[in-house]
């Protein structure tokens, strides 16, 4: 079983994700440059960073690189694709996930730990959590304000495609717990089949207790367990 972390010019969380998968979890992982062919992998992670300097819109340029056609193909056969932060922006820009991520309501880079409520556990990435559980992970972004029009939002809620919401310590999705103005406090979403997840929080920065928390580790554990069953 081998995993791939895709690197674009400007990716900067690639080595952190690699460390968690390869060293902490023990799942063999390759760093794949976006110009290289995507080989036989069991899961793909698109890490955070500032691909192409966030030119045009965050994630817009990376989403149109040829390697994303391989990622779409990979996702279409049910294999796991995880986009973290800039990776989430790339996944919405590529059309693999619904919605858009625009500038935070308070238009400043926001870097802090947040509480997240697990909304869905029957996905490739959240099987190790309990529904309704509140977990902690850090966010670090300026363009994380999730938006979808009301019809899309209705459909996403109906088909349970929201994976996480920003909540307070009681688990309530209040306005004050929303760090960026995301509609309905949405922090992460999945595709129809649950094998593509995009999330603004950084699970790789919360995967070892020495970093202040290890709730994010279960995202990677869930993905590896799922890939093992495929």
């Amino acid at each position: 079983m081998t995993f791939a972390v895709i690197r674009f010019g400007g990716s900067n969380c690639d080595l952190d994700v690699y460390h968690v998968l390869n060293d902490v979890l023990g799942a063999p992982t390759d760093l794949v440059w976006y110009k290289d062919p995507v080989g036989e992998y069991d899961g793909i992670v698109i890490p955070g960073g500032f691909s192409y300097g966030d030119y045009l819109r965050a994630g817009a340029i990376a989403a149109r690189t040829p390697i994303m056609n391989s990622v779409k193909q990979f996702a279409s056969v049910g294999k796991p694709v995880l986009g973290i932060c800039n990776g989430f922006q790339i996944l919405v820009e590529s059309g693999l996930l619904s919605g858009a991520l625009s500038t935070n309501e308070y238009p400043k880079f926001c870097c802090k730990w947040v509480d997240l409520r697990i909304e869905k556990t029957d996905t490739t990435f959240t099987s190790k959590f309990k529904k309704g559980e509140v977990v902690r992970m850090p966010i670090a972004h300026k363009e994380g304000n999730f938006f979808a029009d009301s019809d899309t939002l209705k459909s996403m809620n109906l088909h349970q495609r929201v994976a996480f919401r920003y909540v307070d310590s009681e688990g309530d999705a209040t306005a004050s717990a929303n760090p960026n103005g995301s509609v309905e406090n949405i922090a992460g979403v999945v595709n129809k089949t649950g094998n593509v997840l995009g999330m603004m929080p950084h699970p790789e920065r919360a995967s070892e207790s020495v970093l202040g928390g290890d709730d994010g580790f279960r995202i990677f554990e869930s993905m590896v367990e799922y890939a093992d069953r495929l």
């Binding site: 045009l56 819109r57 817009a60 149109r64 919405v92 820009e93 919605g99 858009a100 625009s102 938006f147 979808a148 029009d149």
Partner: peptide, 9 residues
């Protein structure tokens, strides 16, 4: 349609 604008927003 394909790049310069994001039709969602």
């Amino acid at each position: 349609e394909k790049l310069l604008a994001n039709p969602v927003v």
